[in-house]
Amino acid sequence: MPKTEQELLDRDAERDIGAELLESIGQMTAGEAAAVHSPVAIARHRVQMSQSQFAQLLGVSVRVLQEWEQSACEPSGAARSLIRVAQERPEVLRELFLDAVA
């Protein structure tokens, strides 16, 4: 069941996703078992964007992006394709985002 808005706010108030991702990357580099993060959160981290920026780039609400990052539901269609680009060629999406906000 998807989390309520308040549950999401409470969870996010206690988490630093960027720090968690960096810690996991460090653990993987050291060959240690790391916490599993959603592919969407990892893709967002690779393009170095906030949830708000990444949601804007994908054309979805921050709430939808948070649900994807929690694995409460999965992206489909064009969003899935853009997330794959973010995973494999993050510089392309950073460039597109900068062009869009310029």
Rank of each mutant, 00 (worst) to 15 (best):
4 T>C: 00
7 E>R: 10
7 E>D: 05
8 L>R: 15
8 L>I: 15
13 A>Y: 03
15 R>W: 06
15 R>Y: 07
16 D>N: 11
18 G>Q: 14
21 L>I: 15
27 Q>G: 11
27 Q>W: 15
27 Q>H: 07
29 T>V: 14
30 A>G: 01
30 A>W: 02
31 G>I: 13
31 G>A: 07
31 G>L: 09
33 A>R: 02
34 A>S: 02
34 A>E: 15
37 H>I: 15
37 H>C: 12
40 V>R: 03
40 V>F: 00
42 I>M: 11
45 H>C: 00
47 V>G: 00
48 Q>N: 11
49 M>I: 09
52 S>I: 13
56 Q>G: 01
56 Q>S: 14
58 L>M: 14
60 V>G: 01
60 V>H: 06
60 V>M: 04
61 S>W: 10
61 S>G: 12
61 S>M: 03
67 E>Q: 14
67 E>G: 12
70 Q>G: 13
73 C>R: 15
73 C>F: 11
74 E>C: 14
77 G>V: 01
77 G>I: 01
81 S>I: 13
83 I>Y: 04
85 V>W: 00
86 A>H: 12
86 A>K: 05
87 Q>Y: 13
88 E>P: 07
89 R>I: 09
89 R>M: 13
90 P>A: 07
90 P>R: 01
91 E>R: 01
91 E>K: 06
94 R>W: 01
94 R>C: 11
94 R>P: 00
94 R>K: 12
96 L>G: 01
96 L>E: 02
98 L>C: 03
98 L>V: 08
99 D>F: 07
100 A>P: 02
102 A>R: 04
